[in-house]
Simulated scan of single mutants.
Amino acid sequence: TIGPLVCEAIRPHVGIPIDVHLMVEPVDALVPLFAKAGANLITFHPEASRHVDRTLQLIRDHGCKAGIVLNPATPLAWMDHVMDRLDVVLLMSVNPGFGGQAFIPATLPKLREARRRIDAHQAAGGQPIWLEVDGGVKLDNIARIVAAGADTCVAGSAVFGAPDADGGYRGVMAALRRAAEQHL
């Protein structure tokens, strides 16, 4: 868990975008704090917002890209009415709470349907929307996840649990990229 102070402390030391996934309720009070601390992208669970459209606009008003996070049991319908405000849709492929959980296979059809909806939105003239998956992403499933439509994958325990003998972080990141590219 990283708060706004940690985000602010690491901002000068990284050249990559800082992606903040808010797993708190309510979210609106934290958006300005993370934006000021240097976040580039802020996502939140729609159940944690009183008004999803307004929260997305609040994030954008603070100069950040905005997105929603859908838990395994959260329906895709949440994205349908706010597509014009989304930069990213993050599908959780585990139930949030702790690292190291197994990927929930039912995420794959949900991922394919989310990709279909995003592609239809873009075909109708809408902006590009990243489709991200987080939870249980490993070497043995990343190709299927990418084949189902993800363009961004979050791997936590697969990376941070990598033994040094296998090349550590860099080795597992390279292996994950190679496995994901098998689909492409």
Rank of each mutant, 00 (worst) to 15 (best):
Q122W: 03
R170Q: 14
C153P: 03
K65M: 15
N71Y: 11
I145C: 04
I142H: 03
G161I: 00
A37Y: 12
R50A: 15
L139N: 08
R54W: 10
E113N: 03
A175S: 13
K36V: 06
P4S: 12
I10R: 04
D84Y: 09
A175D: 13
C153G: 07
P26V: 07
A180T: 12
K138F: 00
D84S: 13
G136C: 10
V27T: 13
Y169S: 11
T152V: 15
R112H: 09
M92T: 06
G3H: 13
R177P: 02
L41S: 03
D19F: 15
E8D: 12
V159C: 07
H13P: 01
E47S: 13
D151M: 06
K138P: 05
I145T: 09
V20G: 08
H121G: 03
N40I: 06
H51C: 09
L108V: 06
V6Y: 11
A158I: 08
L56H: 09
V88T: 11
G167F: 03
A35M: 11
A158H: 05
R85Y: 07
G171W: 02
A39V: 10
K138N: 10
D61I: 00
E181A: 15
N40Q: 12
P109C: 04
V133H: 02
A123V: 01
E181K: 13
E181N: 14
D84Q: 10
A179F: 04
D53L: 14
P75Q: 02
D53K: 15
A73W: 02
I10L: 12
D134E: 06
G99L: 06
A150R: 02
P32W: 07
M83T: 11
A158Q: 09
P105V: 10
A35N: 07
G136Y: 02
D61K: 13
G135W: 07
P75M: 04
P12C: 08
A106H: 08
T1A: 15
A124H: 08
G15P: 08
